[in-house]
Design a protein around this nucleic acid. Structure first.
Lengths: 255, 255
DNA sequence: CTTGCAAAATCTGTCTACAGTTTATTTGAC
DNA sequence: GTCAAATAAACTGTAGACAGATTTTGCAAG
């Protein structure tokens, strides 16, 4: 088989990526980016031929996506890309609001010199990406910054937050269609606004001030939540985030 | 193929369970119960022959368990049951501590008459199970009670908490070897103690008092955490739960 | 007894084949 | 033209086969 796209990989043929890993990554990326829209039908034979692999490894890739809830399907029927709904979006944010403060506090309490530099670099890189209007670069650095702030939670927490982040992006990409080519567009200005919040979070983290950092994060999350809710539907905030917001650490915390 | 164990199923051959679902369930149960110990080697050919299916569906079942982190493996090498470590256990509880209060508050705020009865029945059933020393029954009702208390969080949260619960059980079953045949054993008495906490949680929930219910839950979780830490290793509590406990809602809450 | 190495046995990743099912298309009656 | 049955096409689930990799076994040298 050919493994399209992985030809100019980093390493040599030392440790070959297998077909299922390849199909898994490709499909996952297409689903999260919206290239494969929610509800889209996934024919094994068509996908297998498109990726130039047989159905056996493709099925394994699909099975993994099934476990991640990115695809759904019944016995003997073709699978479909899972649908989006605000209730799920609500829960994603409820979990993030409940969990990220804990993880951030842990990260800040154990910050090392190199990881400080890494965090700082991500924020700087975001500035640059905005200046050049390189939205893909911004997305990558944005993700890395947020996940980097929460690594202190450990591997399992990181895995969960990574999954939630990618799913959040899926909702944002599907519900929000913004124009990032115009430097003066509302979308581009929103990026600049969020950068202010990122700087606040970074500075607080570097100063060892978890309280301020968490407050900035919660503000950040709430704004993202509001934007999607406003754009996707006029319906009021669902109940789980409401509870999460109520329970989230306020301006008063030990240290 | 024969599908051992599913012969006397509930429904007719209306909607046949496929081989991969069967293998998935069987393997998962064996891993979680400890029948397949952490680190155990999983040969595809042996498992396939044991389940009387071909390797094709078995691989799909394994792939799903891989996504759940219950098995690990490298390319071209046999997979193994994933190992346990206290750091992971710590994170599981950190997530539960952060998330279950939010979910419980949501549940209590929307409690219906039938769901009240269901919760009450679970606690009663646990009493009965203890009286008869039916530990399997107790485990099932215990799980159902806790998950029932948190259903208000929604499908995604429920799925996550279910996964965390099952993983918690895996740690408990592996690290704790208790004698439930002796009504006077320490293990059996621990069950009775936890029932007091369950009653507290139930009563608070039925009274619509989320604050008290959550406080009881956190006490419950912390005790379970302490027991495993005491038995598994004398090392001090890891950092993530420490943060989670610090952030957990205290005796003072809006409503 | 160990250690190292080669042969044998076993295993993994992938493909193809095939039975049985679902989906699409055609056909014919109204 | 519309609907329904019937036929055709396409698809799913599973088994089995094969190449290539890994693990185990057997055996000789130290």
């Amino acid at each position: 088989m050919s493994l399209p796209g992985s030809t100019s990989e980093t390493a040599a043929a030392d440790r070959l990526e297998d077909s299922v890993e390849f199909a898994y990554r490709a499909l996952r990326a297409e689903i999260l980016s919206g290239a494969l829209a929610p509800g889209a039908i996934l024919s094994q034979v068509q996908l297998a031929s498109r990726f130039d692999i047989s159905r056996t490894p493709l099925r394994e890739a699909l099975r993994r996506l099934l476990a991640e809830n990115l695809v759904v399907g019944d016995f003997n029927r073709r699978m479909r890309v899972s649908e989006l709904n605000l209730d799920d979006f609500d829960q994603i944010y409820a979990i993030r609001i409940a969990l990220e403060p804990v993880a951030i506090a842990s990260t800040i309490a154990h910050l090392t010199a190199p990881s400080r530099a890494v965090l700082e670099n991500h924020v700087t890189a975001m500035d640059e990406a905005i200046a050049v209007l390189d939205i893909d670069r911004f997305r990558d650095e944005h993700r890395a910054f947020h996940l980097g702030l929460t690594v202190g939670g450990g591997a399992r927490v990181a895995r969960l937050l990574e999954d939630l982040w990618d799913n959040s992006e899926r909702y944002r990409l599907t519900y929000l269609h913004h124009d990032y080519n115009d430097p003066a567009s509302e979308a581009t200005r929103a990026l600049t606004i969020s950068q202010v919040e990122h700087r606040n979070m970074l500075n607080a983290a570097l100063a060892g001030d978890a309280t301020t950092c968490i407050a900035a994060l919660l503000h950040h999350l709430q704004r993202a939540l509001d934007i999607v809710y406003a754009e996707a539907a006029a319906q009021p905030r669902a109940r789980v985030t409401a509870e999460a917001l109520r329970f989230a650490p306020q301006q008063s915390m030990p240290a």
